[in-house]
């Protein structure tokens, strides 16, 4: 094999591809089939139009650079951030937002902790509430209006991907987001985090 592979380009391409795809078939590919089973058992509900728009804002602003949404099942983590994620919680999370850095706190269950007013104030000026905070200020979010057609497109795309939105829900969505700012949407999204999956004794300290 050594002989042919160092002499034939086709042999090289074929063997390398096969070796590489081995890992794909063992642990990446099976993941594609989790979804249907998970949908059966999940308590997660699809986001409302405003929450979904807020999730898009969360993605666009790069919040994942500093905030995880993955509570590991370790005692100190449960104490600090609440109920750990289960696989079925994230079944409607098209683009998972677990992130890999906790420069800021985990947000998996943040919807159970603060009020809408707190979030708005905190987004506009985090240092006014937590003086040691190194979070950027996001005042412009509350000046810019949502693009209604984009929100509808997002819902339609989610429906295509298997999120159980009804056509009426999508039709009605424009009235729900009309005139709202990006900040309003982001606050609605944050307030929704952890609410559906809430369990007894799983609240934040």
């Amino acid at each position: 094999m050594e002989e042919s592979i160092s002499k034939s380009v086709m042999a090289f391409i074929t063997i390398t591809t096969v070796v590489v795809l081995f890992s794909f078939f063992v642990w990446v590919f099976p993941g594609f089939f989790f979804t249907n089973d998970l949908k059966e058992i999940t308590t997660a509900k699809p986001y409302t139009a405003l929450e979904l728009a807020g999730r898009d804002v969360y993605m666009a602003e790069g919040c994942v650079a500093c905030h995880t949404q993955m509570v590991r099942n370790l005692e100190p983590e449960r104490k600090r951030y609440g109920r750990p994620n289960k696989m079925e919680d994230d079944v409607y999370e098209f683009n998972f937002l677990w992130s890999s850095q906790r420069t800021g706190p985990d947000l998996t269950n943040i919807g159970l902790k603060y009020t809408e007013g707190w979030h708005k104030q905190h987004l506009i000026n985090p240092q006014a509430i937590v003086p040691a905070s190194i979070m950027p200020q996001y005042p412009w979010l509350f000046e810019k209006k949502l693009n209604v057609s984009h929100v509808i497109a997002s819902m339609k795309a989610m429906k295509k991907l298997g999120v159980p939105y009804t056509d009426t829900q999508i039709e009605n969505s424009s009235s729900k987001v009309e005139g709202k700012t990006k900040g309003d949407a982001l606050v609605a999204y944050l307030m929704s985090l952890g609410v559906d999956t809430r369990e007894k004794g799983g609240d934040l300290n």
Partner: peptide, 13 residues
């Protein structure tokens, strides 16, 4: 703007 065709744990993998 697009959404990944994978969700949650599958997307993470």
């Amino acid at each position: 703007k697009g959404y990944s065709i994978f969700s949650g744990a599958s997307d993470a993998l």
